[in-house]
Amino acid sequence: MNNKVPNNRAWLLVLPMLVLVAFSAIIPLMTVVNYSVQDVLGPNARFFTGTEWFQSMLNDDALQAAFLRQISFSLIILAIQIPLGIGIALIMPKRGWQASAVLILITLPLLIPWNVVGSIWQIFTRGDIGLMGWGLRELGIEYNITRNAGDAWATIILMDVWHWTPLVAMLCYSGLRSIPEAYYQAARIDRASKWAVFRYIQLPKLTNVLVIAVLLRFMHSFMIYAEPFVLTGGGPGSATTFLSQSLTTMAVGQQDLGPSAAFSLIYFLVILLVSWVFYTTIMNMQKDKPPHGGA
C-alpha cells in the first residue's frame, strides 16, 4: 500500500490547488517581506530602512513580554487539555444513541464562531448578568476580569479549555475506536489491569493522534486572537495581550506597517521552526513501522 509510483505528471493534479494557495499565501508573504524593510508612509512616500525594524522588534520589551505570555499560555492549555481530552475520550460511550448524542454535544463548542465564543464567555463571566460571575460573587469570591489579571488569565484558560478540549477528546476518541477488540480481549486473558490496558494498549495507539492534537492545539493557541480580544480586550493592562493581538494592534490600529511586518516574519519563522520539528517527528514515527510484513 505504501509503494508510491514515481510520476512527475502528478504535478498536473496538484497545480490547481497550488495556484489557489499560492495566490493566497505567496503574494501576501512577499508583500510582508517588502514592508519589513521599508518605512511606508503613504502611496508615494516610502523609505528603505534595511534591517532596522527587525532590530527594534527583536529588542522590544513589550513584544518579548507578549511572546513569553504566549508561550506560557500555550504550555498551560496543552498541559490541561491533553490529559483532560484523553480522560473524556476514555469515558465516552462507545455505541448506541448515547454515543451519537455525546458526540454532537461535545463537538458543539468547536462550531461556534470565535468571536461568539468570546461573547458567550464575556456574558457568562460578568458580575451583573453572567451566571458564573454572579455565582462566584454570591459565593463571596472576589472575581473581576477587568481588574484582576489573575482572574482574567484563569478565565481565558477556562474558556480555551472549554472551547478546544473537545478537539483533543474527539481525536483521542477516534484513536481509541480504531483499536481492534482483540487487543482488549487479549489483555483480559493476560490478566492486565485497567491501568496496564491504558498504559500498554490505549496510550501507544493514541500517540499518532496525540501528536496531531498537540500540533494543532499548539498552533491554534499561538494565533489565538478573537476570543481574548472580545473577552478581555487584552487587559487588564496588557496582562492578556497575546502575540496576534499585539501584531494586529500594531498593523491595523497604529498603521505601523514596517515594524508589524518585521514582527510577523519573526513570528512566522518561529512557527515554521516548530512545525518543521513536529512534522519531521511525525514523519519519522510513521517510518518506524515494520519495514516488511504487517497486513
Binding site: 508510491k4 509510483v5 514515481p6 510520476n7 512527475n8 505528471r9 502528478a10 504535478w11 496538484v14 497550488l18 494557495v21 493566497s24 499565501a25 503574494i27 501576501p28 508573504l29 508583500t31 510582508v32 514592508y35 498552533m219 499561538f222 494565533m223 486572537y225 502575540l243 496576534s244 501584531l247 494586529t248 498593523a251 491595523v252 506597517l257 508589524s260 510577523s264 513570528y267 512566522f268 512557527i271 515554521l272 512545525s275 518543521w276 512534522y279
Partner: peptide, 30 residues
C-alpha cells in the same frame, strides 16, 4: 497519496505551514 514527484514532501510541508500561518500576518496584504 499515490505518486512521488519532485518536491512532493516539501510541497506537502509548505501546505501544512499555511495551516499554521497566523492570519494576522496577512491582514493588510490581503
Amino acid at each position: 497519496s499515490r505518486y512521488t514527484f519532485i518536491g512532493d514532501k516539501h510541497l506537502f510541508f509548505w501546505l501544512l505551514t499555511n495551516l499554521m500561518a497566523p492570519p494576522a500576518v496577512f491582514l493588510l496584504p490581503y
